[in-house]
Amino acid sequence: MELGRKWVQLVIAFLTNGYWGFPVSRTIYQGPLKVVCSPGLNCYSCPAATTYCPMGALQQLMVSIRFSLETGHYYVGLYVLGCIGVVGSFLGRMVCGWACPFGFIQEMLHKIPSRKWGVPRILRFFKYAVLFGMVLLLPLFVVSEFGLGEPWFCKYLCPAGTLEAGIPMLFLRPELRGTIGWLFYNKLIIMIFFIIWSVLASRPFCRVGCPLGAFYALFSRVKLVKLQLDEAKCTQCEACHHVCPMGVKFNESPNDAECISCMACMNKACRFDAISLSVAGIPLRTTEVVKAKRAEG
């Protein structure tokens, strides 16, 4: 299953970054697919990106919302919210575990041998501040004299943007190198910080700073596809605690907002069949029913 998940991550990373004409065109993909939402965090200024990044798009819409309304256009983010809302209603943070290129990069970095550390649970709240502050409120309310805001998360924080777009664009367009300033160095330092942290701890950006992860986390109780715990079968052996890449204690908190449905606890840890994948509350594994029927007949 773990290998299957890795393949899914790899294929989705390639699909959302499938424009390989950029070394020739020396610019980003500008085709119709860019109206499709990338389920995970994937900078749309990345030269290879084929889809739009929902966090980037949402900020840009907030930034220019006054101008849009003044010109009679109701571009208030409904399309973008609708896209990620539909995905979130189905899968919640399963997207993080299976379909996010930046999550995948962090997982790969964490495979580099080193001493490993945990991430303090309290830090998880920061990503909600990033979502509501840097993606929605600051771009909406801190505006220039012309009524335009700034994309705070992309501009000052997003390490995926620096890695996937900022650095590659400097290679593609040497003329841009002269325009580098403190903004770039600030983001470069943040990116290096998260790269080093990803080697030492599992998915630190997902746990602490990602606004898209924070958005999907809001669906942890209401998503259609989720893991569920059979309390009758759980022996409280706590084996699931030791395999979780997100620091979740599944038997204590089966609806945890940090769970990315990687299924490590179900497949690698639980020997008592207490964890199962369910769709709308229906467990996908029906072995119990089958066994019960067999025993009866």
Binding site: P151, G166, L176, L183
Partner: peptide, 12 residues
């Protein structure tokens, strides 16, 4: 929006 490179977004 997604056809334009947002230079300030990527730190340049």
């Amino acid at each position: 929006q997604s056809w334009q490179i947002c230079l300030s977004c990527i730190g340049i």
